[in-house]
Amino acid sequence: MRLKFPGALWRQRELCWRLTEREVLGRYRGSLLGVGWSFLHPLAMLAIYTFVFAHVFKARWGTGAESGDTMGYSIQLFAGLIVFNLAAECINKAPQLILSNPNYVKKVVFPLEVMGAVTVFSAGLHGLVSLLVLILFQLVAYRSLEPTILLVPLAWLPLVLGLLAVTWALSALGVFIRDIGQVTGVAMSMLMFLSPIFFPLSALPPQWQPLLQLNPLAIVIEQTRMVAIEGRLLSGVYALVGTIAGLFLCEFSFRCFLKAKRGFADVM
C-alpha cells in the first residue's frame, strides 16, 4: 500500500512549520519570561517530584544498591514523565482540535489534516526541551552522560507516529461525538498511574507485568530509560516493528480523517 500521509505533510511543510511556531510561541506570548517558561516548567516539576517522592515518601528505584540513590530515582521518574506528558498533551488536545478552529473548517482550501501534525510537532518540541532539562540534571548529578542518549529520537519515533494517528482519529471523532474530550481526560488520568512512571516495570509481581505491557506507553518509557539513563542499546525489534506499525496506523487514520472532514462543516 502506498502511503499518502508523508507526501501530504511534506507538501504542506511550510504551513506546518509556521503553525507549529505560532503554537509554541503563542503559549508564552505576553509573559515576562516568554519561551524561558518552556525550560523552567519541567525544571520546577523535576524539583517538586524529587522532593515529594524521594524525600517525603522516601521512594526508591529498584531493590539493589542503586535503590538508595535519590537523584537516580528523580531521573528515572522524570524520564517516564517526559514520555507521558508528550502523549497526554496530544491526546487531551485532539478532541477539541477541529471544534476550536471553526474558521479553518469553513475555508475549503485549508488542509485541516495539518492541524493534527502541528499538535504533535508542538508537543514533540516541548518534549525535547524537557529532555534537555533531563540531560542537564544528569550532568549535574553524575557529571557524565551515556552515549546511547543519542538514540532517544529513535525510541520516540514509534510514539510520535502513534500519536499522530491517534490525534487525527480523536480530532475527527470529537466533531461528531462531543463526549470524547471527557473520556480522554479520564483515560489519561488513569493511564498515568497504569504506566511505569513512578516505578519500574520489573517491580510489579510477575503475573501483572504482561497486563501492564498492554499499555503502549509502557514500552516507550522503558526503552527511553534504557537509552537515556542505563546506557543500553535500543531494542531493534521495538524500533522496527513499532515504526512500521506506526506508519500503517498513520496511513489508516489519515485516510479516515480525509473522509470524515467532508462532514465537518455540516455538523459545526
Rank of each mutant, 00 (worst) to 15 (best):
L125R: 10
A141G: 14
V166L: 12
V140I: 14
I135M: 07
L136K: 08
L154N: 07
A123E: 03
I180K: 04
V120I: 08
V114R: 08
G162V: 08
A169V: 01
W168Y: 06
P196A: 08
L150F: 15
V118F: 03
L125D: 07
E113P: 04
L157P: 10
L154V: 10
S122A: 15
R178Y: 06
L164R: 05
L134C: 02
L194Y: 13
L128R: 08
F176R: 15
G127L: 09
G116V: 05
I177H: 12
V129P: 01
F193C: 12
G181E: 06
M190F: 14
G116L: 01
I135W: 07
P111L: 11
P147E: 00
V114I: 15
L164D: 06
F121V: 14
S144G: 11
V166I: 15
L128V: 15
A187R: 04
W156D: 03
P147D: 02
S130I: 00
V152C: 04
L150D: 12
T119M: 09
L131I: 10
V129W: 01
L191A: 13
I177V: 14
V114F: 14
P111K: 11
I180R: 03
V118Q: 05
L112G: 05
V186N: 04
M190Q: 05
F110W: 12
V166W: 05
L163Y: 07
Y142I: 10
L161R: 11
A187Y: 06
L154E: 06
E113Q: 12
D179Q: 02
A169K: 07
A172I: 09
L150W: 14
A123K: 06
V160A: 13
R178P: 03
T167G: 07
T148L: 07
L159D: 12
G181L: 06
A165W: 04
L112Q: 05
T148F: 06
V133T: 04
L134K: 06
V152P: 00
L150A: 15
M192D: 10
